[in-house]
Amino acid sequence: MEAVQFIKVERRSGDHVILPSLSFSIDKGARIGVYTSLERRRELQALLIGQQDQASGDVKLFGKSIHKKRPPAPEELGILFLDEGYYERLNVKDHLRFYKRIYGSAHSIQDILNTVKLAKHERVQVERLSLSHRRRLGMAKLLIQNPEIFLLEEPDQNVDMETKVWIRELLIQLQNDGKTVLVLTEHMEPAVLLSDTAYHLDEKGLSLLPSEKEEEEEGQETDTVIRIDKIPAKCEDKWLLFDPAEIDYFESDQGTSVLYCHGEHFPCGFTMAELEERLKHVGFFRCHRSYLVNLQRVREIITWSKNSYSLTLDRKEKRQIPLSKNKMADLKTHLGIK
C-alpha cells in the first residue's frame, strides 16, 4: 500500500525550478531519506502538511489528496520540525500531558518518558533542556500522536552521539512496527544513515543514492601501488595542493568528488575510483560507494544495528561517515580487528 504519493508535482518561481515534475511514491512501512536543499525541503514539508497547494499535480496520503482545505489528519501524518516550538516554561512531563490531551492518546506518559530517555528530566523546564533533550521531547510528541507517517526535518542535527544512536534505533523500531518514516535533510550522511533507501532531489529530479548492492558490483581492487605526494582541488580561480595526511575524507556528490579538510570542502578533479587507487597505500579506505575516508582520522566504529554501521572522525564536530555492511569485514582486516 502506498502511504505517500507525489503525482507530477511541480513548482517554479519565475524561471527558477523549485520542484521539478515529481512523480514518487513511498510504500507503507518504508524508511526513506531525501537529501535536498533547504528550499526544496521546506516546499516538500509544506505540501505534505497541507500548508500550500501544489501549482500542478497531486499529493496523496493513503490515496487521499492533501491540500489547504484538506490537510492530513493527526493519525495520518505527524511532523517534527528542526526548530520545533515548545512552551519554554513548562516542564517535560507537563508538555507530555498537554500533548496527550490534544491527541486523546491512551499512551502512558511514563512509558513515553522511558522510551525517549527523559524520565530523569521530567521536572526540568524546557528552556533548560539541551538541544539533544529538546529533540527527544519532539520525538515524544510524535510518539504520543502516533501517526502512520513520521515526517522528520533534520532529526539528528546538532545532537550528541548518544541521541544520534537513539534516533537511529527508534526509526528502525518504528519501521518494524509498520510506521512510514520520511527524513528530509540537507546532508547526505543522515539521508543514508537514518534510512534504508536514500534519494537526492535537485532541479533535475529525484535520483536514488548508491545502494550497497551497487557497491558490491563496482569491481575488483587492483594491487597496483601509485605513489602520490599531493591531491589537487579547485578553489575559485586557483588550485590547492593537499598532503594526503591532512585530508579527512572524500564524498561523491552527484558525480563530483569533494575533498573535506579541517572543516572546509573543495571540488576535486579525480573520480572516487581514481582517488581510491591513488590513496589506498597511505591509509584511505572506501567505506561506502560515496565515501573514501582517511583511516588515520577515524576515532570510532559505531554499530547502529545488525547491518548498519558508521565511522566517527577524530575532529571537534565528530563528523559521521556511513560504513556499508559489506565493507565491515575489509575494514576489520585493515585495522587488524579479530
Rank of each mutant, 00 (worst) to 15 (best):
G255I: 02
K93I: 13
Q54F: 08
M1C: 03
I18L: 15
L208P: 02
V17E: 05
R97S: 13
A55P: 03
F285A: 03
M1G: 01
M161K: 12
K179Y: 01
V9L: 12
V183Q: 02
M1E: 05
W304E: 12
L201Q: 05
I172P: 06
G205I: 06
V183H: 05
I302S: 12
Y99M: 02
R11E: 14
D248K: 07
P72R: 07
I167K: 00
L201N: 08
H95C: 03
L131H: 06
R299P: 03
V225Y: 08
V298P: 08
V116T: 05
Y199N: 04
R31Y: 08
V293F: 03
F98R: 04
V293I: 01
V124K: 13
R289E: 00
G57R: 13
C261L: 09
K325Q: 14
D196N: 11
I102E: 05
G336C: 10
I7T: 14
R42A: 15
K117P: 05
K325H: 14
S324F: 07
H288C: 01
T303V: 13
D253G: 05
V4Q: 09
F242W: 02
G263M: 00
S290A: 08
A55C: 04
Y249N: 14
S257H: 00
H107T: 06
L22M: 13
L292F: 01
E277P: 00
L96W: 08
A198C: 09
E75A: 11
D202N: 14
G269N: 15
P190T: 03
D111M: 00
L295S: 00
L194D: 04
H265I: 04
A3P: 07
L129Q: 01
A233M: 05
A119W: 05
Q173P: 11
R289C: 02
D237L: 12
R168H: 14
E153M: 08
L170E: 06
P232V: 10
L44D: 13
F98M: 08
S195Y: 02
L137E: 12
R31P: 01
I149L: 12
M188R: 09
H288Y: 07
V192Y: 03
P71N: 11
E221A: 15
D15I: 12
Y291I: 05
T222A: 13
V126Q: 06
